[in-house]
């Protein structure tokens, strides 16, 4: 936008940010419906073990608790990155973003290893309706985390290369919304899948 103009570009940029942020909220709500549907299928199928193991036998709560803390702390560090963004401190933004990435990757690694153990014990998604819905619900969350990590890596590179430009700020805000949203979804998974599952409810 190099042409001389009477337009108030700051105002236009502010409007664009507001519009995009709102649009992203609407997207998150559609994602909420997506997860709600997966929770519903899990609720319908979670007793259909077809002679295979149930949640009580499969889930190891201490392990999942470590996963949970990794993700919750990553949400906190993402919050700190956003505070650094407010202060225009690029290096701090990058530091907290890096820490968030590490914690997110730790969470994902733990989840993949949990899945791997189950599958090598012969309890894959082919085993029963319960395991199909378990792997799909938790796996979809994991897939979102993966997308979040890819996004974080790319946006981190942009931040490092371009600095805290208007566009970068806008996208960092969206990424943090996405990350916190996944945290909320995980709380539901932790409660409904793992806690209830261990209790055999």
């Amino acid at each position: 936008m190099s042409k001389a103009t009477t337009l108030d570009l700051h105002h236009i940029e502010a409007e664009a940010t507001e519009k995009t942020t709102f649009g992203f909220w609407v997207y998150l709500m559609t994602d909420c419906v997506l997860f709600a549907t997966l929770f519903a299928t899990y609720a319908v199928l979670h007793h259909n073990t077809f002679g295979g193991p149930s949640g009580t036998e499969l889930f190891k709560l201490p392990y999942v608790l470590v996963e949970t803390f990794a993700l919750l702390v990553s949400s906190f560090t993402m919050g700190l990155a956003m505070l650094a963004l407010q202060r225009n401190a690029k290096d701090q933004v990058l530091f907290w973003l890096g820490l968030t990435f590490a914690l997110g990757a730790l969470f994902l690694g733990l989840e993949v290893s949990e899945f791997h153990n189950m599958i090598s014990d012969g309890n894959s998604w082919r085993r029963s309706g319960f395991l199909s819905s378990y792997f799909t619900l938790v796996g979809t969350h994991g897939l979102h985390i993966t997308i979040g990590l890819i996004w974080m890596a790319i946006l981190g590179t942009f931040t490092w290369a371009k600095g805290l430009t208007h566009t970068v700020r806008k996208r960092l805000t969206l990424l943090s919304l996405f990350w916190h949203f996944l945290d909320v979804i995980w709380i539901f998974i932790f409660t409904i899948v793992y806690l209830y599952g261990s209790l055999g409810i």
Binding site: L45, F50, G129, F130, S132, S133, T136
Partner: peptide
Amino acid sequence: MHFFTGGHGG
């Protein structure tokens, strides 16, 4: 998977 299959708890 077994979401909607006849057997295996779908």
